[in-house]
């Protein structure tokens, strides 16, 4: 099984993944294979802020099988401006997620 692993410490909420997927898969405006969510900002301690973005896969993600077959990165991964998302085998993703903070792992 494949998984998308996000190091959400770095996701800046730039929306490139959303649109790279939408354009590549020719989805209509307003529909996404990966969709951004925002949590925050709020101050939970003096000068400590909760302010994070989370890209989340939808049912319309097809894992970019055609791109992978052609030796390319998935469109969302290639265009991610913070280099913070990767598609990989779920077992490998689980190992990385278990060893590192701020990881979001999604299987399909």
């Amino acid at each position: 099984m494949k998984a998308l692993l996000v190091n959400y410490r770095w996701c800046t909420g730039c929306h490139s993944c959303e649109l790279a997927c939408q354009v590549k898969n020719d989805l209509p405006a307003g529909q996404y294979g990966i969709k951004l969510n925002q949590v925050g900002p709020w101050e939970y301690a003096p000068k400590k802020w909760q302010y994070s973005y989370f890209p989340v896969l939808t049912d319309q993600c097809n894992l970019c099988a055609d791109r992978l077959a052609a030796g390319k990165l998935p469109s969302c991964v290639q265009h991610c401006q913070a280099n913070c998302i990767q598609l990989m085998d779920a077992s490998e993703a689980a190992t990385i997620a278990a060893a590192n903070p701020k990881m979001l792992m999604m299987t399909i």
Binding site: A20, K24, Q78, Q81
Partner: peptide, 24 residues
């Protein structure tokens, strides 16, 4: 049909902001 980032370009290294991603 679409515009992609050029992974061979050292400047943006395959990335794009959403404006060029959706420039079509």
């Amino acid at each position: 049909v679409r515009v992609e980032g050029d992974p061979e370009n050292p400047y943006n290294q395959g990335r794009l902001c959403p404006r060029c991603v959706a420039v079509d």
